[in-house]
């Protein structure tokens, strides 16, 4: 961009970095396009019931030149691949990509000649969202994880170097940005619980335990 490439790391720009990331994450503007059934769920997410407007994303931009988030919603056929790539290329940086649904993530059940086996063959993907199709909550979860990742993104090459140095020293957060389920992250108690579980390497078991607590027929078994 400019000045941030020249200034040494750690001086002045940490707050600018935060501010810039905050601005970015607070109003993602998605590019308007859907490829298949996942797009229906994506549209539902924008509607009043799920309301992406809560995160400043109610407007999907008609032109990729005005968008900074691409939600690849649906299977990418070989024929569609160059189009998807062109849309991506037309988006201004910094930009992010969510691969929505298993078809976009890996080809899903369409393991055949016609479907690109994962949209990451043609564009870099920031968050992979499973599901066939994912329910709107899952998309919101993915977007929230995306936001968390953006917040942790370094600004400029020096910031990147600093982050790499931190990673080399092992000074990374216990829970990687974008790894905690959103419903845990927004609740202080459950966030602590999850962080503790990650330390013990049993976060997935914690998830099942908590789910069992909510099931009336399993509650007895859990006691």
């Amino acid at each position: 961009m400019g000045i941030e490439e020249k200034l040494p790391a750690g001086i002045l720009l940490t707050s600018v970095e935060k501010l810039s990331n905050y601005a970015r994450k607070s109003s993602f503007w998605g590019a308007t396009f859907g490829l298949a059934c996942c797009a229906i769920e994506m549209m539902a997410s924008g509607g009043p019931h799920y309301d992406l407007g809560r995160w400043g994303m109610e407007v999907f931009r008609a032109s990729p030149r005005q968008a900074d988030l691409m939600i690849v919603a649906g299977r990418v056929s070989q024929k569609m691949a160059p189009v998807v790539r062109q849309i991506y290329d037309q988006m201004p940086e910094p930009r992010s990509v969510i691969s929505m649904g298993v078809c976009a993530s890996s080809g899903g059940m369409f393991n055949n000649y016609a479907i690109v086996q994962g949209v990451d063959h043609i564009i870099p993907v920031d968050v992979y969202l499973p599901g066939c199709p994912p329910r709107p909550e899952m998309l919101i979860d993915a977007i929230l994880k995306m936001r968390e990742k953006v917040m942790a993104q370094p600004l400029g090459p020096n910031g990147r170097k600093m982050l790499e140095a931190r990673q080399a020293e092992g000074r990374t957060p216990i829970v990687a940005p974008g790894a905690m389920p959103s419903s845990y992250r927004v609740d202080k108690v459950r966030r602590e619980e999850w962080t503790q579980a990650v330390k013990e390497g049993r976060e997935e078991q914690l998830r099942i335990e908590n789910w069992m607590k909510l099931q009336p027929h399993l509650r007895e078994a859990h006691k």
């Binding site: 969510i98 993530s105 890996s106 994962g118 990451d120 920031d126 968050v127 992979y128 969202l129 499973p130 599901g131 994912p134 329910r135 909550e137 899952m138 979860d141 993915a142 994880k145 990742k149 974008g178 790894a179 389920p181 959103s182 419903s183 845990y184 998830r207 099942i208 789910w211």
Partner: peptide, 10 residues
């Protein structure tokens, strides 16, 4: 019924 499965790597 858990569904919050999005991750950033395959």
């Amino acid at each position: 019924n858990e569904y919050e499965l999005a991750r950033d790597s395959r």
